[in-house]
Design a protein around this nucleic acid. Structure first.
Lengths: 105, 105
DNA sequence: GGGATTGTACGAGAACAGTCGTACAGAACG
DNA sequence: CGTTCTGTACGACTGTTCTCGTACAATCCC
């Protein structure tokens, strides 16, 4: 189990936008927006474990989340500070947009 | 030639992020950031005409650009106001991030 | 009208993304 | 030590995306 996390200077905007340009991962982002730690299994419902692993990898390799093993769980946490340093304002505007998008038009 | 453009209330965040989560289309966005009209053929180099048509369709159907026939050309223009109304701050932070991403680390 | 220009439409192929099931690894708990 | 729990690894399948070439439509210009 390797769990490679890119350094902030390695973040690529296209990877971040691709990672967030998916309704499943966008839903996960809204859960993780509190910047607290959440076990992998409690963030999203309705998917197999292997599907969730796939989505966490996409988010992790883009630099969006941190994955830290803790006992037999793996805790997820939003990399808000690193994202803010690299792409100022981006995360907040995406979170605001996600909230706007979720409202009834 | 139909050129369907969604109304702002039909914009979906996931479509916008997916449209911009591609280096080719991100490069186009930076060219279009001046909010002036550009013929399809002058915005990007190195692609076939049919590839460009594909990318313009992705951007148009996400609500990112407007495509307006003008003589034998089709002019592209960024839908900055509509995007700003629907997802405030998003476009500017993506453009800033694209500039940051393009700098030498 | 005939030719050149600009771009779309369509079909094809290669690569990638999203999903799952099964198998496995590591930690916790009896 | 064996079982359970949490999550990863891998392989498979399906559908989508990206790219191109060819064909076509519309416009402009001679």
């Amino acid at each position: 189990m390797v769990l490679h996390h890119p350094a902030p200077e390695q973040f690529r905007l296209e990877n971040v936008l691709t990672a967030l340009g998916n309704p499943t991962r966008l839903a996960a982002l809204r859960v993780l927006a509190d910047c607290r730690q959440h076990p992998c299994g409690v963030v999203l419902q309705g998917y197999s474990k292997s599907t969730l692993t796939h989505h966490w990898r996409v988010l992790r390799e883009a630099g969006v989340i941190w994955q830290e093993p803790a006992g037999r769980e793996v805790l997820l946490r939003l990399r808000r500070d690193d994202l803010e340093a690299r792409f100022p304002g981006l995360l907040d505007s995406v979170l605001n947009a996600a909230a706007a998008d979720a409202e009834p038009a």
